[in-house]
Amino acid sequence: MDWTALWLSLRLAGWTVIVLLPVSVLMGRFMAIRAFRAKGLVEALVMLPLVLPPTVFGFYLLVAFGRNSPVGDLWQSLFGHQLVFSFEGLVVASIIFNLPFAIQPAQRGFEAIPAEVREAAACCGMSPLRSLWRVELPLAWPGLMTAMVLTFAHTLGEFGIVLMVGGSIPGETRTIAISIYDRVQAFDGQSAAIMSAVLVAISLFTIALTFWLSSRVGRRLS
């Protein structure tokens, strides 16, 4: 059992969720409320990671973050090490490939709030920020929670992009999914089986938690 890899995966998923939560609120709300000309294009771009093969996506990220790329050079000059093949690089990649999982359910959550309810909040004297906090977030939060659970679970299981951008450096970029692959390559079927079972358990737990919480919310609102 590769505890280091499990811990690394959990940290990666945690950071991804922390960064994507505000993004999902802002982008999800924006996409739900605003109508603009390029909306279809933006939605398609957000959905792109869902349909691209992870290796293709990982390849482009590797090119974009690597040595001699503007992003890679900037990172190198700021932090003194390269972005690719580092934990930070994984976090950035993870944030990007989880965008559809974080934004789509949040957008659906905000879309479910009738426009008149938002307008009523404004006519009750609530500023946009106060309306978000007191009315919109309490109503949209099942969608937001689904978004975060999907992001978390998906990060734990992502393989192709992680391998392309991070490689398999123990303690730095070797996540549990990659560790399982390594164990299988090394004919260590028992470790692979244990780690797979742990992943299954974590995934089941998070999904069950989502269903339980959203059914509770359903009861609260009806």
Partner: peptide, 20 residues
């Protein structure tokens, strides 16, 4: 003035109560 700065009371056709 934005809506929240106007001292206006409004009853919508759908009432638009806060369901939670």
């Amino acid at each position: 003035l934005p809506a929240h700065r106007r001292r206006v009371g409004i009853v919508f056709q759908t009432y638009a109560l806060f369901p939670h």
